[in-house]
């Protein structure tokens, strides 16, 4: 087997692992943007916030970052519900979400990033856990646990959310809220409270995604910006409302980025996702699996 083929397969494996992680990062935006139609461009900022909280808990109490992120899930849920309430009262209720709502989330993105810079500075932070330095070797192929565990956790989280949305009453109400508010009201469900719950869940997912991020790579406050294009690219490519489509798109982007980084250098990787996003928007806005 040639050196290139080996490199290629290693890049492929790394891409799949990366893709799994991307699914965790995107699932929140799939819910808020894809299902609820709320253009929460501040989502990456919440993810970075999640990274820093996992970092603090890891450094002060020595808790595993992923466990830490699960512990703070309720807090993130509450934060999400509060942000939605503010958004609803100030913009959505008056039908002014287009211009001012977008500016609002942009402001949030910005405030979070600058606050993190003020508190933690622009140094890269990283976490220690039992698995960060281990790598599984199979012949010539390496699978670092630092990538494998986030991928597994991510897919578990997306799987659980998928079951929740398909099987529970509230889950189904969330799927219906953007399409048929009237039917929901007839069933005695308040669309606003359903949206609040869904947005809370979407921000809660950022807690776990943030922990996974800081397990995979060191984090500084502006890292989030790289993820804006990435998550929207994946979300749109996956067809907005479809979580399975989103996972496929995430894997695809992970693989393309990983191969680009391997053969052309990592500095080109960000352009891949954004380029893909622009191409998708231009030629296939309904997504890969779309009509």
């Amino acid at each position: 087997m040639g050196i290139t083929a080996e490199l290629f397969i290693n890049a492929l494996i790394a891409g799949i692992l990366l893709g799994g992680f991307y699914a965790a990062v995107t699932v929140g935006i799939s819910i808020s943007f894809g299902i609820l139609d709320i253009v929460n461009i501040a989502h990456p900022a919440f993810i970075i916030l999640g990274s820093y909280i996992a970092y603090i808990m890891n450094v002060t109490f020595g808790i595993d970052p992923i466990v830490a992120s699960i512990v703070v899930l309720p807090a993130f849920y509450a934060l999400g519900a509060a942000v939605y309430e503010l958004y609803y009262q100030s913009f959505e209720k008056h039908g002014q979400e287009a211009l001012r709502g977008l500016a609002f989330f942009f402001g949030l993105l910005f405030i979070t990033e600058v606050l993190l810079i003020l508190v933690f500075g622009v140094d890269y932070r990283y976490v220690n856990s039992a698995y960060t330095d281990h790598t599984l070797h199979f012949d010539a192929f390496d699978i670092p646990l630092r990538m494998l565990i986030p991928c597994i956790v991510a897919l578990l989280m997306v799987g659980l959310l998928l079951i929740y949305l398909a099987r529970t009453f509230i889950g189904r109400a969330i799927m219906a809220v953007s399409q048929d508010q009237l039917a929901l009201q007839l069933m005695g469900v308040n669309p606003v409270s359903i949206k609040r719950i869904a947005f809370g869940i979407s921000i809660a997912s950022a807690s776990i995604a943030g922990a996974l991020l800081i397990v995979i790579q060191p984090v500084e406050p502006s890292v989030g910006r790289e993820y804006i294009g990435r998550i929207f690219a994946i979300c749109v490519l996956g067809g907005l409302q479809s979580l399975p489509g989103m996972v496929i798109a995430a894997m695809l982007l992970g693989i393309v980025e990983s191969i680009t980084a391997t053969f052309y250098g990592p500095s080109w990787a960000p352009a891949v996702s954004f380029g893909l996003l622009l191409l998708t928007l231009a030629f296939r806005p309904a997504g890969l699996l779309g009509r």
């Binding site: 804006i228 929207f232 500095s267 080109w268 352009a271 380029g275």
Partner: peptide, 28 residues
């Protein structure tokens, strides 16, 4: 031309993306 046939939000997201693509190009 690429994005304005779509919903307004897509244009905004695309402009966010544009900044990073261009920065990557310039850096390289």
């Amino acid at each position: 031309y690429l994005t304005l046939r779509l919903r307004g939000a897509f244009f905004s997201i695309a402009t966010l993306a544009l900044a990073v693509v261009l920065q990557t190009l310039i850096v390289n």
